[in-house]
Deep mutational scan, measured.
Amino acid sequence: RALPCPAHVVFRYQAGREDELTITEGEWLEVIEEGDADEWVKARNQHGEVGFVPERYLNFPD
């Protein structure tokens, strides 16, 4: 997929490290980079905060 792209959060995730982003179910993010580890992506939330989130917690519109 082309980046950046929108993504809808389907599961809540609490950041466990400083470089991760806490996300809430129902929130929209902008995915800006593929992650440095499998199944992680770097995203920006509506407040401009950036961090890594688990890709499987997101839904990408067609």
Rank of each mutant, 00 (worst) to 15 (best):
residue 1 R to T: 06
residue 56 R to K: 14
residue 13 Y to D: 03
residue 19 D to F: 13
residue 39 E to K: 13
residue 3 L to Y: 15
residue 26 G to W: 04
residue 57 Y to N: 15
residue 16 G to C: 14
residue 42 K to I: 15
residue 32 I to Q: 06
residue 51 G to M: 01
residue 54 P to E: 04
residue 53 V to F: 01
residue 37 A to L: 12
residue 58 L to K: 00
residue 5 C to D: 00
residue 20 E to K: 01
residue 62 D to E: 15
residue 37 A to P: 10
residue 20 E to N: 05
residue 11 F to A: 15
residue 33 E to M: 07
residue 39 E to A: 12
residue 9 V to E: 05
residue 60 F to I: 09
residue 11 F to D: 15
residue 18 E to W: 06
residue 38 D to M: 09
residue 16 G to S: 13
residue 28 W to I: 13
residue 32 I to Y: 11
residue 19 D to G: 15
residue 6 P to M: 05
residue 18 E to D: 14
residue 42 K to A: 04
residue 28 W to L: 14
residue 55 E to T: 13
residue 42 K to F: 08
residue 20 E to W: 00
residue 11 F to L: 11
residue 35 G to Y: 07
residue 8 H to P: 01
residue 44 R to V: 09
residue 61 P to Y: 06
residue 8 H to G: 03
residue 51 G to W: 00
residue 38 D to K: 11
residue 15 A to E: 05
residue 44 R to P: 03
residue 16 G to L: 12
residue 39 E to L: 09
residue 40 W to R: 15
residue 57 Y to I: 06
residue 40 W to D: 14
residue 61 P to R: 10
residue 36 D to T: 12
residue 49 E to R: 11
residue 56 R to Q: 13
residue 6 P to D: 05
residue 58 L to M: 03
residue 54 P to V: 03
residue 39 E to M: 15
residue 10 V to L: 09
residue 36 D to I: 14
residue 4 P to K: 05
residue 58 L to E: 00
residue 49 E to I: 15
residue 57 Y to H: 15
residue 19 D to R: 11
residue 55 E to H: 09
residue 43 A to M: 04
residue 58 L to R: 01
residue 6 P to A: 10
residue 31 V to A: 05
residue 53 V to P: 01
residue 24 T to R: 12
residue 30 E to S: 10
residue 30 E to L: 07
residue 4 P to V: 06
residue 62 D to M: 08
residue 60 F to M: 07
residue 36 D to L: 13
residue 29 L to W: 00
residue 44 R to T: 07
residue 11 F to Y: 14
residue 12 R to A: 14
residue 23 I to L: 10
residue 26 G to E: 04
residue 11 F to S: 13
residue 57 Y to S: 15
residue 40 W to C: 08
residue 44 R to A: 07
residue 60 F to R: 06
residue 3 L to N: 10
residue 43 A to L: 01
residue 1 R to L: 04
residue 31 V to F: 00
residue 52 F to I: 09
residue 18 E to C: 11
residue 37 A to V: 14
residue 31 V to P: 00
residue 15 A to V: 03
residue 1 R to I: 11
residue 59 N to E: 14
residue 21 L to A: 08
residue 42 K to H: 03
residue 48 G to E: 09
residue 16 G to T: 12
residue 1 R to P: 03
residue 8 H to A: 04
residue 40 W to A: 06
residue 31 V to W: 01
residue 2 A to K: 15
residue 51 G to F: 03
residue 20 E to L: 02
residue 4 P to C: 06
residue 22 T to F: 02
residue 8 H to I: 04
residue 35 G to H: 05
residue 13 Y to R: 07
residue 25 E to M: 06
residue 34 E to H: 11
residue 7 A to S: 03
residue 11 F to N: 14
residue 62 D to I: 05
residue 42 K to G: 02
residue 9 V to M: 00
residue 43 A to V: 11
residue 50 V to R: 03
residue 12 R to H: 08
residue 54 P to A: 08
residue 15 A to G: 10
residue 31 V to D: 00
residue 12 R to D: 12
residue 45 N to G: 03
residue 18 E to R: 09
residue 38 D to P: 13
residue 44 R to K: 13
residue 32 I to H: 04
residue 45 N to C: 00
residue 41 V to T: 03
residue 43 A to W: 01
residue 49 E to P: 00
residue 60 F to H: 06
residue 18 E to L: 07
residue 29 L to S: 04
residue 32 I to M: 09
residue 20 E to G: 08
residue 54 P to Q: 10
residue 49 E to S: 12
residue 48 G to S: 09
residue 36 D to M: 14
residue 39 E to C: 10
residue 40 W to N: 06
residue 47 H to Y: 08
residue 57 Y to L: 12
residue 26 G to Q: 06
residue 34 E to W: 11
residue 26 G to I: 04
residue 12 R to I: 01
residue 13 Y to I: 02
residue 55 E to D: 11
residue 50 V to E: 13
residue 32 I to F: 13
residue 28 W to Q: 13
residue 16 G to P: 03
residue 57 Y to A: 15
residue 10 V to A: 08
residue 22 T to C: 07
residue 17 R to N: 15
residue 57 Y to G: 05
residue 19 D to E: 15
residue 25 E to V: 09
residue 8 H to V: 06
residue 4 P to F: 05
residue 16 G to I: 10
residue 46 Q to R: 12
residue 18 E to K: 07
residue 61 P to F: 12
residue 7 A to L: 01
residue 42 K to M: 08
residue 3 L to K: 07
residue 32 I to P: 02
residue 61 P to K: 13
residue 40 W to L: 09
residue 35 G to L: 06
residue 55 E to C: 12
residue 35 G to Q: 05
residue 57 Y to V: 15
residue 34 E to M: 11
residue 20 E to Q: 13
residue 28 W to H: 13
residue 27 E to M: 03
residue 17 R to P: 01
residue 48 G to I: 02
residue 54 P to D: 04
residue 60 F to A: 04
residue 8 H to C: 07
residue 60 F to S: 04
residue 8 H to R: 08
residue 53 V to A: 03
residue 49 E to F: 10
residue 31 V to C: 08
residue 32 I to W: 07
residue 27 E to Q: 06
residue 52 F to L: 15
residue 33 E to N: 08
residue 23 I to T: 07
residue 61 P to E: 10
residue 35 G to D: 08
residue 26 G to T: 01
residue 29 L to T: 02
residue 43 A to C: 12
residue 41 V to R: 04
residue 40 W to Q: 10
residue 35 G to E: 05
residue 47 H to R: 15
residue 16 G to N: 15
residue 23 I to V: 12
residue 30 E to D: 08
residue 13 Y to Q: 05
residue 23 I to D: 02
residue 48 G to H: 06
residue 17 R to T: 09
residue 1 R to A: 05
residue 48 G to L: 05
residue 34 E to G: 09
residue 18 E to A: 07
residue 37 A to W: 11
residue 55 E to N: 11
residue 4 P to D: 04
residue 57 Y to C: 15
residue 44 R to E: 07
